[in-house]
Design a protein around this nucleic acid. Structure first.
Lengths: 300, 300
DNA sequence: CGACTGGTTGACCGGCATCAAAATCAGTGG
DNA sequence: CCACTGATTTTGATGCCGGTCAACCAGTCG
């Protein structure tokens, strides 16, 4: 799958890409995207932003390399379930598939789309982790969410004609990009696809509402860990042992806590035997206790 | 709420119902909705929950009585813009229209739908104000949002099969109920309608994300006032002088502030000449200043 | 009338942010 | 390998915003 992926804007210079020309010509991450290509986006070498457990990751997630062909979706794709499971006929599948474009890799810090840019597409994360954020006039950032492989970014832009936030790669990221206008059109004829989009949107409302509640720092951190655990689990990772991609500062910002508080709470959880922490590696030792702590927030 | 109105789920005990059989019958409220109709649902008498300035409201909002006929939507309907403006042909309009049902009135405190009930419909508020909320296991409530006439409740339920929150009437409320399955089906053939639904959903994500940020009590209150002002304005009310339907406690809960804090901040705003407060009547005296205060939250 | 709800105001206090500094780690270059 | 740099994390000390508790007032209702 060498030279397979295209940039978000489809403007990839050197790959075969076969990319249609046209409206998507402004999404850049500059430079060296070729170099990071297929050795696996997650190498041991880029330790700081990447995943130190890349080896493990590769084992647990072979699917990451399975980026589909003309008739098959990535098994990591957020829409694979919606499509494969629905028993669409080949032509429909092909039509959906042809509005997909693989883009990336982006590297830590690269901006995938920026607030205010015209909204053209949503994207499923194929590998890596993306954060969405807004920047206050005074430069303070507010993180809206983290997106793991299989999750979809850009949905909150639908009501506007422009993206309402930045999307930034936290580590090495590859995406499946979907032209939204095309997808909406296709959804006209594919009830399941429409339903899936509705569901994704509605789900995000729920998540955001959850974040909006006022909860203690303990509840927030516990909920964060439980959620991450579940999300990793859904992707085939161990739910009890995972590597966070983001810094304490990012976690804190996302949870509306100071980075110091994140540190302290994690420390305390560890002292209480609920979890074990080693840098960004988290091990959940007492899931029950954690869920009890998170209960007011997760409510289930 | 003795036997007055039917609950959203139709489980009301004693009303005459007269309604057609089948599921329609459940969407009625029997009783005195005639009386409440044009005299205005908001009478001086029920001061605590109602609107002491009903007279003013009637003047500003004659549209409230215009609840449509077989071919015309309520001008207050959230979907009227989507439909009337799109130039759909009569048959389409009629098909959309026939999945609408007027329900209510509900009275202050009545539950429209309850968390966990099977999701069947969304609804546009026709008159009055609705709050959505969840209740913690320990009974503390968290208010998710307020919904003014023309706004849509129930969207966040789409991804699940059940409502994720309660919807409660804050004052006297009437609704237009839309069967969601039918609407989704119709949306298959009406691109504009689909787009409108997408937009509504996506908009809600944005709102929730805004609420999730961490802002000072000043910024939150200012943003609340600005938002209410805009929303009232969109409905034809004065943007600078309006009557809040909800209590300080509800405002505080929604904004994640104590009721006392709401009171104090409003007081201070008044002392600073930014607004004038008289109970639930708000007058904005210095919109600029207010928007400056709200800027970090509203970001525009 | 008294009970009750909603709003205001004041006194107090606690959780978490902030400030500051040390400790750890990753990367770099000698 | 080690020294150096800079980012990240941890830990401690201090302070403030806003929550909590309590008293009081004004309407409203039984």
């Amino acid at each position: 799958m060498a030279g397979r992926q295209r940039l978000w804007d489809g403007s990839s210079p050197v790959t075969e890409s076969a990319g249609r020309p046209g409206y998507h010509a402004r999404w850049h991450d500059a430079g060296e995207y070729l170099m990071a290509q297929d050795n696996g986006p997650l190498r041991n070498k880029d330790h700081s932003d990447g995943n130190p457990e890349a080896g493990l990751e590769q084992i647990l997630m072979p699917a990451i390399a399975d980026d589909g062909d003309d008739c098959t979706f990535c098994s990591t794709c957020a829409f694979s379930a919606a499509c494969l499971a629905e028993g669409y006929d080949k032509p429909s599948l092909r039509r959906l598939h042809c509005l997909v474009e693989h883009t990336g890799p982006y590297r830590a810090g690269d901006v995938i789309f920026r607030e205010g840019e015209p909204f053209t597409a949503i994207a499923a994360v194929r590998a890596g982790t993306v954060k969405t954020r807004v920047l206050d006039p005074d430069g303070r950032e507010q993180i809206h969410g983290f997106f793991l492989p299989g999750e979809v970014i850009g949905l909150s832009a639908i009501h506007a004609t422009r993206y309402p936030c930045d999307a930034v790669a936290i580590d090495t990221v590859t995406l499946c990009r979907f032209s939204f206008p095309l997808m909406a059109t296709l959804a006209q004829e594919m009830p399941r696809l429409q339903g899936h989009l509705f569901r994704l949107l509605s789900e995000d409302i729920g998540k955001a509402m959850m974040m909006a509640g006022d909860y203690s720092s303990d509840a927030r951190m516990a909920a964060f860990l439980v959620m991450m655990s579940r999300r990793y689990a859904r992707r085939g990772f161990s739910p009890s042992r995972f590597q966070l991609a983001m810094s304490r500062a990012d976690i804190g910002n996302y949870m509306r806590l100071a980075a110091e508080t994140v540190s302290r709470v994690l420390r305390r959880f560890q002292d209480e035997g609920t979890i074990a922490v080693d840098g960004r590696l988290i091990e959940i030792r007492d899931a029950q206790a954690l869920e009890r702590l998170a209960a007011p927030m997760l409510r289930d």
